[in-house]
Simulated assay, not measured.
Amino acid sequence: MKKDFYEILGISKNATPEEIKKAYRKKAIEFHPDKNPGNKEAEEKFKEAAEAYEVLSDANKKAKYDQYGHQAFDGGGFGGGQHMNMDDIFSQFGDIFGGAFGGGGFSGFGGGGGQRRVKGSNLRIKVKLTLEEIANGVEKKVKVKRKVQAKGVTYRTCPTCNGSGQIMKIANTILGRMQTAATCHICSGSGQILDQKPAGADAQGMLLEEDTVSIKIPAGVVDGMQLKVAGKGNEAPGTNSIPGDLIVAIEEVEHEFLKREGENLHYDLYISFAEAALGVSKEIDTVSGKVRIKLEDGIQSGKILRLKGKGVPSINAYGNGDLLVHVNVWTPKTLNKEQKQFFEKMLTDENFIPKPEKSDKSFFEKVKDMFS
């Protein structure tokens, strides 16, 4: 079972962004590969801290994590950071260290002073899902236009930073001589510049190509949730670069008959006076197909029938919600002469006089039960 992100960083849920950053910096320095060469346990703790920081430092991701836990980012190859490798961490969070490691932030995985890897930019798309797709999970194939390195492009070492991706600066301060590092403005931190490019490539040796990406979407996602497909964003220039990610925003398409409320679904069922009095069998829609339910004779308008497990699966894998069927007795708006005569006779009929029993709940009691 995965550790709690707040526990990993040793902070409370009410921690400020600055406290989160400070806690991550402390943990990452403690378990950094340069300080723990060959220590696999330290490497795993280093990755855990980076994963926790990636989620908790982002307001949207933090809100989803607080609501849904780790399941908000799990399933189908998506993640808040669990699929990050060391290069991801170095490229994304290197600037948080300042001069902690030789003044150059992260040195790169596997040893001090190595070349820093540059990550390509992320791509963002929106995927529309029906309620049935959300309830059952689905695999979608989408076409995206992403930047890729052109075939035949070559790069050479940046002469400005000598391939390090960073430029060292020494400044005299009241505290003495301070060494700082800044990203090389010539190669943008990649340590390489364009050498030769084929026809059609841009100034960085990149081409825009259409790619088909398969996205496995887990059951129970909610409208507005963002999922990540690692490595399917734009590529970056240079032989030592890694591609960005594809961020998938979920948009739920409104169902014609079913209304969603968390994991529960609501269905309005309309029946006639005659059907309510005599009882009837009705076919209704669910996310797994049509089902037939039996209504007892004398059923009252406002009755709520609960179909267990016929709702939407929980994103936290806690089982399915329920389908709540709201019974509405339809009152005819126009009557012919014969029908009017019938109901006029029934005005004083004992069977037609309302006689609610104590077991018949009021509207407010039904609403309270529905949300409890």
Rank of each mutant, 00 (worst) to 15 (best):
D245S: 06
T160P: 00
E350S: 13
T154R: 11
T157S: 07
D4S: 10
Q82K: 14
K145M: 10
I89Y: 01
V248L: 05
R116F: 03
G38Y: 10
D285I: 10
A63P: 01
A201T: 11
N162P: 00
K310H: 14
K26E: 14
P313Q: 06
E44C: 07
E44W: 12
E263Q: 12
R25V: 07
A171K: 14
T130W: 05
E51A: 14
K126L: 09
T212C: 05
G103I: 00
K47N: 06
A15L: 02
K21H: 02
E256K: 15
I11G: 04
G114Y: 09
P198Q: 10
S121N: 14
N234F: 02
F5E: 00
P237R: 09
S121E: 15
E18T: 10
N85C: 09
F97H: 11
A181Y: 03
N316A: 15
N240P: 00
K45V: 01
K143S: 14
G75Y: 08
I284P: 05
G233C: 02
G298M: 04
M86F: 13
H83P: 00
K282N: 02
E263T: 13
Q166V: 14
K303G: 01
G38I: 00
L56Y: 07
F97L: 06
Q341D: 15
A150I: 13
Y155P: 02
K197V: 07
E263G: 05
L258R: 05
F273W: 12
I247S: 04
A277Y: 01
F364N: 13
R146T: 10
Q71M: 15
Q196K: 15
V221H: 06
S281M: 04
V229Q: 12
K147R: 15
K45R: 14
I125F: 07
K147N: 09
E139C: 05
K62I: 07
G321E: 02
K345W: 04
V213K: 12
V367G: 01
L208R: 11
F93K: 02
Q82V: 09
Y318H: 11
V280P: 00
E19R: 10
T157W: 03
M206R: 03
G311F: 06
K45W: 02
S91H: 02
N264I: 03
A201P: 12
G238D: 03
M225Y: 08
A42K: 10
E254T: 15
T239Q: 11
Y68L: 15
Q115K: 15
G238A: 06
G104A: 11
K368H: 12
G104N: 11
S288V: 08
I299T: 13
E350V: 13
W330D: 09
G38R: 09
Y68E: 13
E235T: 04
K151P: 02
K26T: 10
C158N: 04
Q166M: 13
K294H: 11
Y24Q: 01
E365P: 02
K26N: 08
